[in-house]
Design a protein around this nucleic acid. Structure first.
Lengths: 155, 155
DNA sequence: GAGCAATATTTACAAATGTAGTCGTTATGA
DNA sequence: TCATAACGACTACATTTGTAAATATTGCTC
């Protein structure tokens, strides 16, 4: 019976050769719980995937290794955690996996931004902008850029 | 020798009655390491202190207890961690302590904002604003507010 | 003066996170 | 064919975080 395969899927990774049973949808066991939080290290991996679209563990490791000095083992751990969290999907490719992002970068960025705004500015995004403007965080150029941007949005 | 006292200070808390030895400056053992990170729960406590200026553990607990349902024990743990991190100072008051913030709220907010902008927008704050503007995050009112704000800053 | 209530200090413990090592399998090149 | 390198899976382990209980001390009330 299929219990074996299911257990493997729950674990987030299955060996690519053992009958890649695609019969079970990735969220079969209840997927709409609040999308699990992606940690900072995991986010670094996501950036690589968002950038390249799809990559093997080794490729991710190369890409991310320039910044942080992570070992391949570390990258693999992060990838499998991301798979568990259903932020990344795997497709078998020969004896290895290719990893691709399930989550849109814009959604992640939006979520994180919102969290910050909620936590620090009582949910008022304008306050954040005000803060950025008042602290050194925005240069004259930034200000112009934003002004232009607003002009556009005002149609 | 003084090792005993020093150990107590390192632990972040000393009993208020045992000769509150103010001889050793709070950062005697090297304080300029990157200011230790304040966690989310700790931040909730900081908000209370920023709001009230100074408070006893019980007061903090009352204040914060409305949102989160924390026990006094929990609040005390968080307070002592904040003291360790030198984000909060204690002054003996009778048999208890009064806790007051050492860090400016603006600095914390600025730091967190910057971290986000660095991590998610390659350090370009304008990109964050752009993102907020394009996602649902900014209402028409927000946009006007920001526009006004920019007008002011442009002098 | 004895007990109680309020305090601070210590200890606890599970979950998440950062960082990696080990094990088992298998494609591959000599 | 046999060793080896490449992979994924599993295990590991310290640290941080969230959440709190246990313990010790002590001023205050009866």
């Amino acid at each position: 019976m299929t219990t074996h395969v299911i257990k493997q899927m729950e674990a987030g990774l299955s060996t690519p050769d053992t009958t890649p049973d695609k019969g079970i949808s990735p969220d079969a066991k209840g997927a709409h719980e609040t999308p699990e939080r992606i940690s900072e290290a995991e986010h670094a991996v996501m950036e690589v995937l968002w950038d390249g679209g799809t990559a093997s563990a080794a490729q991710v490791c190369d890409a991310v290794g320039e910044e942080r000095g992570w070992s391949l083992a570390t990258v693999k751990t992060l990838l499998s955690r991301l798979v568990q969290k259903q932020a990344v999907a795997t497709t078998p490719d020969g004896r290895r996996f290719l990893y691709s992002p399930m989550m849109e970068r814009a959604d992640y960025v939006g979520g994180e931004s919102r969290r910050l705004v909620d936590r620090l500015f009582g949910g008022r995004a304008a306050s954040l902008v005000a803060h950025l403007a008042q602290s050194e965080a925005l240069t004259e150029d930034d200000l112009s850029e934003i002004a232009d941007l607003l002009k556009d949005l005002k149609s």
